[in-house]
Each structure stands twice: as structure tokens, then as C-alpha cells.
Design a protein around this nucleic acid. Structure first.
Length: 261
DNA sequence: TTGATTGTTACCGG
DNA sequence: TCCGGTAACAATCA
């Protein structure tokens, strides 16, 4: 089941039930969880996301830092406790709820200095109200690498993954191999705003929804894409080209997203 | 058993 | 410094 980064964001809402409570922390298969025991029983003061990084903040400045990577999953249920499913690395238990975190690529305790360092290396997050898109545009405008590479570079702007990259650039008729220094402010703004809209929708439905008009229909929010992993373009019916950007698969409609070269 | 995957980082070379 | 390529790691499913 495709989940991607969106679940991190959905997780923020789900996890709000934990903030303001003292959490019991267990690690059923805890090879990642060294140190998390020392947070057990402490007050969780806030749950926040920075791009795809999820942070539970605790009293006294420490926090639990989670990144789900490609394979991680989060499940929430109400008490009573159920058997862990699969590779549950960390289990967070509040007075009312249980959250299981399966297979994260990062699961570590950060002190306040490390937390500051983490947030400093993450670019502006399209879903955060405190994000400053100017910072992203400045980096893009002086970069010689491609826009396809740049918008998925989490230190340039945070939140976009491989599916959203393909889909947003198609929606905005931008060829992924266009160089950053050839992207004007207006084009950047369209990309930023589309990312914001799509990720907001994704969080709402806990699914990656990128087709125009989708998501307005409450019941029908199965994931479906325009050109990602597709053979033909839904607009011009032309063939979709496949290639790679930074080792990740990429898709483009050469007709609707004219080549910059 | 093998391969593929919605992510990231470290390291190396140009 | 910047940028691309490669390997490594994570878990699950077909």
C-alpha cells in the first residue's frame, strides 16, 4: 500500500492525542530504540513535523526523532493493547492510545542541540505556516542542477517525494530536466503552491492524490496518478518517457512538458 | 529466493 | 563548493 511521506503528516494529526500526556515507550523489536527508554514516563509536550521528519518533543528538551524512510509505517489504535504487527521498533502508549512505528530508517533521541541542527538542515516545508519559500527560490535560481532534482532535495524545500515530483512538474508543464537557474519566480511559485495544495489534500485523505478534481469526491479517494508509472499522457495521449533523476525513476510527457534543450 | 520500492546518507571523483 | 553516481540500509510483498 503506497504511503510515502504523506503518512508522516497525517501522523501529526493522529499523534496530537499523545501531546500533553506522559508516554510509556516500549521497543518490542528495539534495535533502534536505544535511549528511547529514558524518555519513557516523561511528558510529551508537542508533536511536530519538519518535512518528512517526525519529532516528539518531551519535557527537559529531549525529543524522539523518527523518519520512516521507504518502508516505515505508523499505526494507531485505542487502548487496550494489541499484538504488534510486523517489525514494530517503537510503541508509544498514552493514557488512551497506542502508536506503533514499524521499520523506521531513523529512530533516535535528540537533545536540544541536535534538534536545532536537524531543523537547520531541512529546507522550508511546504506544509508549515512558518515556511519561507524565498529561501527555496534563492537556492533554485542559482543552481545548475535540474528542477527535478532540486524540488526533491529536502535541504532546498521539504516535503516532496518521488511521486509528487513527477506529478507536480507535469501539472505545471515544467520539464524535470529544466535547470534551476532557468526557473523564473512565477514558475517556482506555481510549483510551490501546487505542492502545498497537493500535500494538504494528501494529508487530509492519507493518500497521494494528484489528479485534477480528485479529492472533491469524499468516497472515491483511491490513489491514482496522471503520469507516474503510466504509459500514456491523459491530456495529449502521447507516450510517457521514463528516465532517472539521482537514481530514482522519473516520468515526463515530452509534449506537455517541453524539453528545455 | 529475487527483485522492486513513495527515502536518506556517506563517500568518492570530477 | 557543487553535483552526480554508487552503495548501504530499512521492511514487505509479489
Amino acid at each position: 500500500m503506497p504511503e510515502g511521506h504523506t503518512i508522516h503528516r497525517a501522523a501529526i494529526d493522529h499523534h496530537k492525542v499523545l501531546a500533553g500526556d506522559k508516554l510509556i515507550i516500549q521497543s518490542p523489536q528495539g534495535r533502534f530504540a536505544e535511549g528511547s527508554q529514558h524518555l519513557s514516563g516523561k511528558l510529551c509536550t508537542a508533536v511536530e513535523a519538519f518535512g518528512k521528519h517526525l519529532v516528539y518533543r518531551f519535557e527537559a528538551g529531549d525529543s524522539l526523532h523518527i523518519h520512516l524512510g521507504l518502508f516505515g509505517k505508523i499505526r494507531k489504535h485505542k487502548l487496550p493493547l494489541k499484538e504488534p504487527r510486523g517489525a514494530v521498533r517503537v510503541r508509544l502508549i498514552s493514557g488512551t492510545h497506542v502508536i506503533d512505528i514499524n521499520g523506521p530508517s531513523i529512530c533516535e533521541v535528540l537533545n536540544i542541540e541536535e534538534f536545532t541542527k536537524l531543523t537547520a538542515r531541512i529546507g522550508p516545508d511546504v506544509l508549515r505556516s512558518d515556511a519561507n519559500p524565498d529561501l527555496a527560490f534563492k537556492k533554485i535560481a542559482k543552481s545548475k542542477s535540474s528542477i527535478g532534482s532540486l524540488i526533491m532535495n529536502q535541504s532546498v524545500m521539504a516535503g516532496i517525494g518521488n511521486i509528487y515530483r513527477t506529478e507536480i512538474l507535469w501539472r505545471q508543464a515544467v520539464h524535470p530536466e529544466t535547470l534551476g537557474n532557468n526557473i523564473d519566480r512565477q514558475t517556482f511559485d506555481r510549483i510551490w503552491n501546487d505542492a502545498k495544495d497537493l500535500l494538504t489534500l494528501g494529508v487530509k485523505h492519507n493518500a497521494i492524490i494528484t489528479k485534477r478534481g480528485a479529492g472533491r469526491f469524499k468516497s472515491k479517494c483511491r490513489e491514482d496518478f496522471n503520469i507516474f508509472a503510466k504509459e500514456t499522457c491523459p491530456d495529449c495521449k502521447g507516450e510517457i518517457s521514463r528516465f532517472e533523476i539521482n537514481g530514482r525513476r522519473a516520468f515526463v510527457c515530452e509534449h506537455c512538458q517541453p524539453s528545455p534543450f
